[in-house]
């Protein structure tokens, strides 16, 4: 998916994560993680981000995460929503997300 604008999803409430996706043409993926549990789960969070971006075929993007202890499925949900918003797409292939 091609990122064409800034897309945000999530919140700063406990158990949630606020994710901002921006375009980063030709420069690959740049992930910036700020988390209250970074020391404990930072690697796992980045793994979820990577897998999700891979699944969505996002090659170039700047991703910023403000994490408040979100579960993996919440990180995935917020990232998917932010990417679709940033791609300006409202056609969701649920079958590929299952």
């Amino acid at each position: 998916m091609k990122i064409v604008k800034t897309g945000m999803a999530g919140s700063l409430e406990s158990s949630d994560v606020l994710i901002t996706v921006d375009s980063n043409p030709g420069k690959g993926r740049n992930v910036n993680l700020n988390s209250i549990v970074k020391r404990q789960y930072g690697k796992q969070i980045l793994k979820v981000v990577d897998e999700t971006l891979e699944q969505l075929s996002v090659k170039d993007a700047k991703i910023r995460l403000e994490d408040k202890g979100a579960l993996d499925c919440t990180i995935r949900a917020r990232l998917e929503a932010a990417v679709y918003r940033a791609a300006g797409s409202e056609s969701y292939p649920w079958e590929n997300l299952t």
Binding site: A9, C73, T74, R78, E80, R85, W94, L97
Partner: peptide, 15 residues
């Protein structure tokens, strides 16, 4: 509406 749909979808398929 879109973000809630993603959240419920992921919760139901994971938890």
């Amino acid at each position: 509406k879109d973000t809630a749909r993603f959240l419920v979808f992921n919760a139901l398929t994971t938890l």
